[in-house]
């Protein structure tokens, strides 16, 4: 299932937490060779993890991490504005309606619909929280996967060569894209809605305060 968790809520899911940061080390350090920091426990974290970001996580039935991404509003510190400003033509992107999506990670041997499930969850956030765009930093090779899923970012530019090539791109999420992504994920809009409500609380019902 998808869980939407702020960093300060991860402690309630110790297995998920440890496996997510280990899978990130595996993807970004071992497989892609990015210059990231891996600690003595084999976990990859950076300074943006300290800003209480919101993680969107695919949790496998055994409670381990299957894939994830990390979200932060662009009104605060972001990786794009601090490290990739050249790619966006100089300057910064700032708006409470534009969030940054980084550390898009897939565990080895995770189930095939994981990337699509994450994108679908990202779309649910856009729809319910008035996020108009995500600006993302991702492994350039992901573009192919995003395209297959049915939700391609517009790539603004890339840095580096070969497997360590990093791209910056922008996502919108149209209703058509959502339908395609839902089909790739094999997850119904109803299910994603339930997961969203499980994490954020259910909006449409009444406050029942009697008693």
């Amino acid at each position: 299932m998808i869980r939407f968790l702020y960093a300060d809520q991860l402690a309630d899911f110790p297995k998920l937490l440890a496996t997510m940061f280990k899978d990130r080390a595996d993807q970004f350090h071992t497989r892609l060779g990015w210059e990231v920091t891996v600690d003595e426990n084999g976990e990859e974290r950076d300074e943006y993890d300290d800003l209480n970001p919101l993680y969107v996580i695919w949790e496998r039935p055994d409670g381990t991490h299957g894939g994830s991404m990390r979200l932060l509003p662009t009104t605060g510190r972001t990786m794009v504005n601090e490290h990739f400003t050249d790619i966006i033509g100089g300057g910064t992107i700032e708006s409470p309606l534009i969030w940054e999506c980084t550390r898009f990670c897939l565990a080895r041997e995770t189930c095939p619909g994981t990337a699509a499930a994450l994108m679908l969850a990202g779309g649910e956030i856009m729809k319910n929280m008035n996020v108009s765009h995500y600006v993302g930093v991702f492994d350039a090779r992901m573009v192919r996967i995003y395209k297959r899923i049915g939700s391609s970012p517009e790539v603004l530019g890339s840095m580096g060569e070969g497997r360590s090539r990093i791209s910056v791109g922008l996502w919108e999420f149209t209703a058509e894209a959502q339908a395609k992504v839902a089909a790739s994920a094999g997850i119904s809009p109803y299910t994603i809605r339930k997961w969203f409500e499980h994490s954020f609380g259910k909006a449409p019902t009444s406050l029942r305060m009697v008693g």
Partner: peptide, 10 residues
């Protein structure tokens, strides 16, 4: 410590 808008019912 959050950054998403919230209806009190949530």
């Amino acid at each position: 410590q959050r950054f998403h808008p919230t209806d009190w019912k949530q």
